[in-house]
Design a protein around this nucleic acid. Sequence first.
DNA 1: TTTCGATGTTCTAGAATGTAGAACATATCG
DNA 2: CGATATGTTCTACATTCTAGAACATCGAAA
Lengths: 111, 111
Amino acid sequence: MKESKEYLGHFEEIVLLAVLQLGAEAYGAKIRQKVSEATERDVSIGAIYATLDRLERKGYMGSWQGEATRERGGRAKRYFKVKGAGMQALNDTNARRSKLTAGLDLGFGAA
Amino acid sequence: MKESKEYLGHFEEIVLLAVLQLGAEAYGAKIRQKVSEATERDVSIGAIYATLDRLERKGYMGSWQGEATRERGGRAKRYFKVKGAGMQALNDTNARRSKLTAGLDLGFGAA
DNA sequence: TTTCGATGTTCTAGAATGTAGAACATATCG
DNA sequence: CGATATGTTCTACATTCTAGAACATCGAAA
């Protein structure tokens, strides 16, 4: 078996992109909201964290605790940020998809 | 839970695209080759058929037996073709990804 | 200082997808 | 017929996807 690059699962890719979009505001609840918006689906919070953890375990993402308290009540947030390896995986994943969409008449272009 | 469109898994999308690319020459072995090429990975034939079957069960794809014999030996081929629902799923899948890549500086563009 | 409401994260479980490779089927040719 | 080439099915298991309940923690009301 010739192994090479690491690719992302479907939902992993979505979550990674959402984190990227949110920038400094990327934490569980917000990420969930972003993903639900984009996918037009009601995604469970468990689904989000499970994926986030997996992504972190793979080294695609980093996380840290936010300031315990601040304005109003509630538990401390856990912020996430995409690492270089994550960007790489995103690119690799896109690259292989591009090879397959190239030349196809799909309405959403190939390049 | 607000359910709406059906989306494709990671490998499902890849296989669907490969079938599309192959057109009239879309059958197991060829599909496997195409996928391996694009992904730069050694994909097993079992992986291909399992996905092909699932895709067909979902109505994204159709299949039929090719001419039993022809030039030289071997078992009859089973050809595949993407159906309208498959094209739709491909578009939906792409649409939700686009929403997340829009505005991001990823090297491979958003639109 | 106890309780309540708001905000967030962990944990538990099960379904669906992804993946490999052996087993099996069938046709041609010597 | 047996060897060989070509292709598909079957069996198994790992990983990913997904939901929702349980748990944690903080501010403010009482």
